[in-house]
Design a protein around this nucleic acid. Structure first.
Length: 456
RNA sequence: GUAGCCAUAGCUCAGUUGGUUAGAGCAUCAGAUUGUGAUUCUGAGGGUCGUGGGUUCGAGCCCCAUUGGUUACCCCA
């Protein structure tokens, strides 16, 4: 008892009922992706470390799970290993110690795939991908070290219609799942660029976005303090403040942003993008939010973020955006793309908390055959196989034990029907079918059983 | 990486200013009931109180360390 088995921090086992609920989310998302003509892709759990490093910002790099090389203690490698370890201690990477890593998201590995295969691929390429990713983050509510992302991306097209479609996919999925009060926030990185130009130039972009992203968390005053710490002068802070004070409904926000940064080139472009998306999509949960920044530094145009319904305390449950030159990082320039991601684990937590899973999700075995003895169970076995060939999931209790034990088993497994075949029934070629929820029992001839159960 | 909280039976938790043999509910098993369950009744098993050290006549309780979990910050799905 002293060496209890355990699993790594932030990872989970999923028992049957959880798997069913998760599969319900997966299949809903997959169906919508397929409906919108996206095609599946899967990539390895691990990537070469240098494929991932430097793509997620400084913080992101720290959160990549690195895989220790094999054979570092091999005699002929010892010197290299020691030198490599010294590099690690200095905070650098060494391919002599680690050259592979678990993937951190699906977008960068996808960009790597496109760059590797662009001569064979047909563009625009619409792909979706549902796979686990890993982050060495400290786990907490709604945050896991292993979690699943569902991504849809369109690459090879600059058209804003892609953004419109992706916004519609968000809506379609959340409506199907019953998550009605989600909020789809949109903004454009170009608008943030324009703000940065007004406030000290492009170099200040990261500082400004990090600070304003925190607005709803820490409030205006704290954001201003942070901007000051990050080296903005009084006038620049004032400009940022009027930017942050933009409010009202979506139309009102648009007209206010126009007067603030509409004369700057990038600002005008960004506003046009947001306005186009807003006008084209029928998504009533869409909300223009100029404080939305998003951390991943490869975004260049429209950015998305999905906020969970306010009644549950949960961070974002999805996000995405346009990246104009992601494959450029891998030597293939000029392939623009735009994508979105669903965070299934958080969507699960939200739906579980809000009780949004339908009961049908849990039904698996439809009928349990009671084991009434050796001869009886061999007859039952034959009938059971007939049911199975009719597509009815069924099970024979594994041994002949007291009836109430078999009842308890059926109940625990949420099996709606039990079928009793004893010596009397065998003689009459009939069986007793009992519905557990109601207690109703009927006598059904063997050859009518499949039809009887199908209609229930 | 930083900080707070928690750790007692398979699970959820009680456990008084430190004081005899550490309790309850649920679950498990057996029986009332060998062809009709889930509400009932009876009984049983199961814990060196996360681990290591210290204070004390005496520690589940106090102190230190350590491990694991959890929440928040940073960042993010």
């Amino acid at each position: 008892m002293n060496n209890k088995p355990s699993i790594p921090q932030g990872t989970r086992d999923f028992p049957a009922d959880v798997v069913r609920k998760r599969n319900y989310i997966f299949s809903t998302i997959r169906n919508v992706f397929e409906l919108y003509s996206f095609e599946p892709l899967e990539s390895p759990a691990m990537e070469n470390l240098d494929t991932l490093m430097g793509k997620y910002g400084e913080e992101g790099d720290k959160l990549i799970f690195k895989i220790l090389n094999n054979g570092i203690n091999n005699e002929k490698n010892i010197e290299k290993s020691k030198a490599g370890f010294e590099k690690l201690l200095q905070g650098k990477n060494s391919s002599d110690i680690t050259e592979r890593a678990l993937k951190y998201d699906l977008t960068i590995p996808f960009a790597r795939y496109v760059a590797m295969n662009y001569t064979k691929l047909t563009f625009p390429l619409r792909r979706y991908q549902i796979q686990p990713v890993w982050r060495a983050d400290r786990p907490q509510k709604g945050r896991y070290r292993e979690f699943t992302q569902c991504d849809a991306d369109v690459v090879g097209s600059l058209s804003l219609l892609n953004e419109v479609e992706l916004a519609n996919i968000y809506h379609e999925v959340f409506v199907r799942l019953g998550v009605k009060n989600y909020e789809l926030k949109i903004n454009s990185r170009k608008i943030l660029t324009a703000l940065a130009e007004l406030c000290g130039g492009a170099a200040k972009m990261t500082d400004i976005t990090i600070a304003i992203d925190k607005l709803d968390k820490i409030g205006l005053e704290k954001v201003k303090e942070e901007l000051q710490q990050r080296g903005l002068n009084t006038e620049q802070i004032k400009t940022t403040e009027s930017y942050l004070n933009i409010s009202g409904n979506n139309e009102e926000k648009l007209s206010q942003i126009k007067s603030l940064i509409g004369k700057i080139d990038s600002g005008k472009q960004g506003i046009d993008e947001v306005e186009f998306l807003f006008n084209q999509t029928k998504n009533t949960n869409l909300s223009i939010d100029f404080t939305l920044a998003r951390g991943l530094n490869y975004y260049t145009g429209i950015i998305f973020e999905v906020a969970a319904p306010k009644e549950v305390k949960m961070g974002s449950i999805g996000g995405g955006g346009r990246y104009d030159d992601l494959t450029g990082l891998f030597g293939v320039p000029n392939i623009p793309g735009v994508g979105i991601s669903f965070g299934v684990d958080r969507i699960y937590d939200v739906m579980d908390e809000m009780n949004l899973f339908p009961d049908e999700v849990q039904v698996s075995t439809k009928a349990l055959f009671f084991n009434m003895g050796e001869k009886e169970s061999s007859v039952a076995f034959g009938i059971m196989q007939q049911l199975r060939s009719n597509g009815i999931a069924s099970e024979l209790y594994h041994e002949s034990v007291k009836i109430n034990k078999q009842f308890t088993y059926a109940e625990k497994k949420n099996i709606p029907f039990v079928i009793i075949i004893g010596s009397k029934e065998i003689e009459e070629k009939k069986c007793a079918v009992k519905q557990l929820a109601t207690g109703n029992q009927e006598i059904i001839p063997f050859d009518k059983l499949a039809d009887y159960l199908k209609n229930l």
